[in-house]
């Protein structure tokens, strides 16, 4: 289980193959499920030219690890690896990688979905977008579930 926060561009597929070679015993896992999040060139009806991702060093890693540990406790998975970008990026850049290895596919599919969903809800990252018109603004919430942030702190 490993978390990496990257300031520079990432190649998620190289990250997965390098990690698998270094950390997993050969021949034991039946598959790996990946989620790769990439930057869109639109959001909430605006054309987006660039984005900067802010985070809370220390707390960000701690919360991603907590979510990964929950997934390990809940499903029969062998290993997991999360890489998340911070800093400046442009459309098509990969933002996040979640990789989960297991002996059987159901566990890694379910655990991967769990990790990306809870990472989006609770890990302290903030997107600041620059529109094509040059306007810079903080993204208010992740559009899939705007109410979730309120529930975390209760």
């Amino acid at each position: 289980m490993k978390v990496k926060i990257l300031k520079d561009a990432m190649d998620p597929y190289k990250e997965v193959s390098d990690y698998e070679r270094e950390a997993l015993p050969p021949g034991k896992h039946g598959g790996v499920v990946l989620f790769v999040g990439t930057m869109r060139d639109f959001n909430d009806g605006n054309d987006v030219r660039a984005m900067s991702l802010d985070h809370y060093p220390g707390m960000t890693e701690k919360h991603i690890e907590k979510v990964m540990q929950e997934a390990h406790d809940r499903w029969d998975i062998m290993d997991s690896y999360v890489v998340h970008r911070v800093g400046d990026m442009v459309p098509t850049d990969p933002i996040v990688l979640v990789a989960v290895w297991s002996a059987h596919r159901r566990d890694s599919f379910d655990a991967c979905r769990y990790i990306i969903n809870y990472l989006k809800e609770s890990a302290p990252f903030w997107k600041c977008e620059v529109t094509k018109a040059g306007v810079k603004h903080w993204v208010e919430h992740n559009s899939e579930d705007p109410g979730v942030a309120k529930r975390i702190a209760k």
Binding site: G37, L53, H55, Y56, M59, H84, I95, V96, I116, L119, K120, E121, S122, A123, P124, F125, W126, K127, W138, V139, E140, H141, N142, P146, V148, A149, K150
Partner: peptide, 10 residues
Amino acid sequence: VAFFPPVTGG
């Protein structure tokens, strides 16, 4: 102590 707005990562 840290204060911040709702998170928007991922």
